[in-house]
């Protein structure tokens, strides 16, 4: 049975807050988290005819499936896709300071940041340095390659390996998708 707009409203009410926290933990950015949440529900509305199942039972998993796809796109493109929101004509204002703080609180970002810093410090120097160059200093791969006297391709591979390593280290401390959904 396709989802009805009333189902989507109900799912939004029940899961928007959890999704914001879910996205915030993974993007470390409250603005991105709110945009991704809105885009997830706008996409759910546009694709509601594809939904099969019971809204209350299967809806949350379906919503989080859409959320994962948007997160992957965000990781790939480095920006939030807003096409579904745009098609619906949905816009939003900027976040207020208390809203920033509340989202950080919900996502336990302070804890996550501490954990990242701690795990970063525990990583091998070579990996920590290349992550510092790429993620913190936002250097291009050509700059990293030049500084480390390696090829650009090797620089990309090393950054990728270091990110995977960091992800594996902090994953046990990240609230799961199930926890966000609950």
């Amino acid at each position: 049975m396709p989802l009805l707009p009333s189902d989507i409203s109900r799912l939004y009410e029940a899961h928007a807050r959890g999704l914001v926290a879910y996205f915030a933990r993974r993007t470390y950015d409250a603005e991105h988290a709110v945009d991704l949440t809105a885009e997830t529900f706008a996409t759910a509305f546009r694709q509601r005819a594809r939904f099969i199942g019971e809204p209350d039972r299967d809806g949350p998993r379906w919503i989080y499936g859409i959320a994962r796809n948007h997160l992957q796109t965000f990781y790939r493109d480095g920006r939030v896709e807003r096409s579904a929101m745009a098609k619906l004509g949905v816009e939003r204002r900027a976040l207020t300071e208390p809203e920033y703080e509340r989202i950080e609180e919900l996502a336990e970002l302070a804890t996550v940041r501490q954990r990242v810093a701690s795990e970063l410090a525990a990583m091998p120097d070579e990996q920590a340095r290349i992550l510092q160059m790429r993620v913190v200093d936002e250097q291009g791969y050509d700059e990293i390659a030049s500084a480390l006297q390696i090829s650009e391709q090797t620089a990309r591979a090393r950054v990728s390996r270091a990110l995977r390593s960091l992800a594996v280290r902090i994953e046990p401390f990240m609230p799961s998708e199930e926890a966000s959904r609950a």
Binding site: S9, Y12, A42, R93, I103
Partner: peptide, 21 residues
Amino acid sequence: FHDLPILGELGDALDTAMARE
């Protein structure tokens, strides 16, 4: 969404857009 008014506003905007569509 009393602690996060932005979510309430977005929800209202989505509701309106869905009703219109």
